[in-house]
């Protein structure tokens, strides 16, 4: 896929070209929104909004990584959403389980190649990680999602958040430190090879 050619075509109003870019990056955009917002429905809305915004503002794309540009848009939308939530807190309509967590219906998360036990373990692990991510301040959550979950390098992450490399390094280190402390509370959910040292001892 020639991404630059598709971007050029989309700039000239070719919606099909843009939709090919959407299909290529929608998982990444959705993941970023979900990890930052911690809510499937809100992440779904943010991802759709991000692609519409990207199409409308395609002329402002100055080159570089298209994925980084998309992630920057969705990160900003997530920030707006979190600010809106802070101003007008809402009660989720989804039912809660015994621990107070929302009961999701992750049918779309299923991987047909996994056993049910493996799927359950992954879901539990994912929930534990998300819980710890939710505990982080927004800036730390964004950077750790970009680097450790999206797999970006420091320069790409710096491009997304619009900050220098030093800020990325500092925020990432502090985020990992906090996550380490948080994940210690979920050590029984973690695979044996991933359990933290002092918990094993």
């Amino acid at each position: 896929m020639d991404e630059l050619a598709l971007i050029q075509d989309a700039r000239h109003g070719d919606l099909n070209a843009f939709n090919r870019l959407v299909l290529a990056h929608q998982d990444s955009v959705f993941n970023q929104a979900y990890r930052v917002l911690g809510d499937v429905q809100a992440a779904d809305d943010a991802a759709q909004e991000a692609f519409i915004s990207a199409y409308e503002n395609l002329k402002s794309f100055r080159g570089g990584s298209f994925r980084s540009w998309l992630l920057r848009i969705v990160t900003n939308l997530c920030y707006d959403e979190l600010r809106r939530r802070k101003r007008r807190p809402t009660t989720p309509l989804e039912p809660l389980d015994d621990t107070g967590d929302e009961i999701e219906s992750p049918s779309w998360m299923k991987d047909s190649g996994e056993l049910p036990e493996q799927t359950a373990e992954r879901a539990e692990l994912g929930r534990a990680i998300q819980h710890c991510l939710d505990e982080l301040p927004f800036e730390f959550r964004v950077i750790v999602t970009l680097v450790d979950i999206q797999g970006m390098d420091y320069s790409e992450a710096a491009e997304v958040i619009g900050k220098p490399l030093g800020t990325v390094k500092s925020r990432l280190a502090r985020a990992r430190l906090r996550l380490r402390d948080c994940l210690q509370g979920f050590w029984e959910l973690l695979p044996a090879t991933m359990r933290l040292v002092h918990e094993v001892e």
Binding site: D27, A123, L125, I149, L190
Partner: peptide, 19 residues
């Protein structure tokens, strides 16, 4: 810690966001 984070399941978008 980094390995745990990197093992987090990559979610698939629940639908297509084509415009």
């Amino acid at each position: 810690t980094r390995a745990i984070l990197r093992s987090a399941p990559v979610l698939r978008a629940p639908r297509n966001y084509t415009i």
